[in-house]
């Protein structure tokens, strides 16, 4: 059962100050070149800020079990959405859904030493069987 929790104003203010500090930090870090880590740091700080908003401003910290289940379902959905989509997209040999002139160079996921084992070109599809299977089919009946 949900409880009516009266959160002290001082706690709200502390969370607010933390959120502002984290905003300053995320802007400051964005100005420094960390390569791929820029995006990781930015998303980590955003997740931390979002958690503070959800836990304290939205009162999830004092929420009942059903509310927590709803939030876990949302998080699982987002994880599936991003995980499955990016897993597909990042492991494609070519992004054939893009126009050829906009197709970027792809990351090389081929494993060294296995190159000789995989055929360069897929074998052409077998020619459609002509009369022989038909007669066999007919004979079977």
């Amino acid at each position: 059962m949900s409880q009516h929790v009266v959160v002290p104003v001082a706690l709200y203010q502390r969370i607010f100050v933390t959120l502002i500090v984290l905003t300053v930090v995320t802007v400051a870090v964005a100005l420094v070149d960390l390569g791929e880590w820029n995006a990781v740091v930015a998303l980590s700080i955003a997740s931390l800020k979002a958690s503070l908003v959800a836990l304290y401003f939205m009162g999830l910290r004092w929420g009942d079990r059903m509310t927590r289940v709803a939030v876990l379902v949302a998080l699982a959905g987002v994880a599936l959405l991003f995980g499955a989509s990016l897993n597909d997209d990042l492991t494609r040999e070519s992004k054939t859904y893009l126009p050829a002139e906009l197709r970027p160079e792809m990351l090389d996921f081929s494993v060294q030493g296995l190159d000789g084992l995989t055929p360069e070109v897929a074998p052409p599809p077998a020619p459609p069987p002509a009369a022989a299977p038909d007669t066999a089919h007919g004979a079977a009946h």
């Binding site: 995320t26 802007v27 964005a30 100005l31 420094v32 070149d33 960390l34 820029n38 995006a39 930015a42 998303l43 700080i45 955003a46």
Partner: peptide, 9 residues
Amino acid sequence: PMLYLLGRH
């Protein structure tokens, strides 16, 4: 961060 901070470094 996803829109405004991508290319500041």
